[in-house]
Design a protein around this nucleic acid. Structure first.
Lengths: 149, 149
DNA sequence: AGGTCGTCAGTATATTTATACAGTTTATTC
DNA sequence: GAATAAACTGTATAAATATACTGACGACCT
């Protein structure tokens, strides 16, 4: 059993079954004749970015990553490469220009990504205006966005 | 300091600052002259359904609930009104057409919403293809989506 | 007032999770 | 192949988190 396979399996299990704690994973794997320890599961969970969510029934349960951040990044990156025109900063504002019709999509993605520097975000047809927490955030945010290109 | 207020504050803190562990919350509150213990924070976190997410920098960080379902619905609704062109069902497939450049964003939102009818989802530039579990799911899913407009 | 119920928070502790360290396996380079 | 490095895991334990238990406080009775 390779790490990759185990990761696959964990993803599957976390969706199929209710996993309340890491030991539950260990048990499930044991049932399938796979020997692992809680320590390994802890590391797997970190890599897979699984999260332990307080459930409505008063308990806890592990879940898939809240945002497929990886995925979001990929989409952002693709969209940036496709539609990016320019970016500029003024005080705590960042203005991104895109090809016409793309700004809304870009804004949506940026909002979904929930960058900590960001305070708010409005999108027009070819412009996304991001309001950051302060000037420094704006700088940092600009760098982040540029790095997608 | 009432529980409600504290919850408000925790929500704010978790967005503004990087909270790596519950003690960080305790410290932040102490800075503001609010006395609480880790135990209380643990309970607050459970109630607020905050989650500890493995971060990209190798550490951990607390975040808002993965399902801001309310929020997601709002965004979906907004995006649908803005960018929706048509929807169609064939067998277990649902095809949504949007204005060019918007399908990614729509697909992202739909994926984030994790509808139970949905099996998978791919987005192009102006098209989102949703593969449902079966024909009935597809019908139901279509109705759901239409209700956003 | 006294009594009862419900909410809430602290203390102490049990439970759960993360990780330092060491050993083993697997890949890489000479 | 041998040597070296990198990836991976278990053991033991540290660190972080959840919770049983208890007491405090307030609301609402009688």
């Amino acid at each position: 059993m390779k790490k990759k396979e185990r990761h696959q399996l964990l993803r599957k299990l976390v969706q199929q079954d209710v996993i309340r704690k890491q030991e539950d994973f260990v048990d499930k794997l044991h049932e399938r004749g796979i020997e692992v320890t809680q320590a390994t599961i802890s590391r797997d969970i970190k890599e897979l970015q699984l999260v332990k969510v307080p459930a409505q029934d008063g308990g806890y349960r592990y879940n898939l990553p809240p945002e497929m951040n990886y995925d979001i990044s990929k989409k952002l990156s693709r969209l940036m490469r496709d539609a990016f025109v320019s970016i500029d900063t003024q005080r705590e504002f960042v203005l991104i220009r895109t090809l016409p019709g793309n700004a809304f999509a870009l804004g949506s993605l940026i909002e979904t990504a929930k960058y900590s520097e960001m305070f708010g975000c409005v999108s027009g047809d070819d412009t996304v205006l991001i309001i950051c927490r302060d000037e420094e955030s704006a700088e940092r945010f600009q760098r982040r966005i540029i790095s997608f290109i």
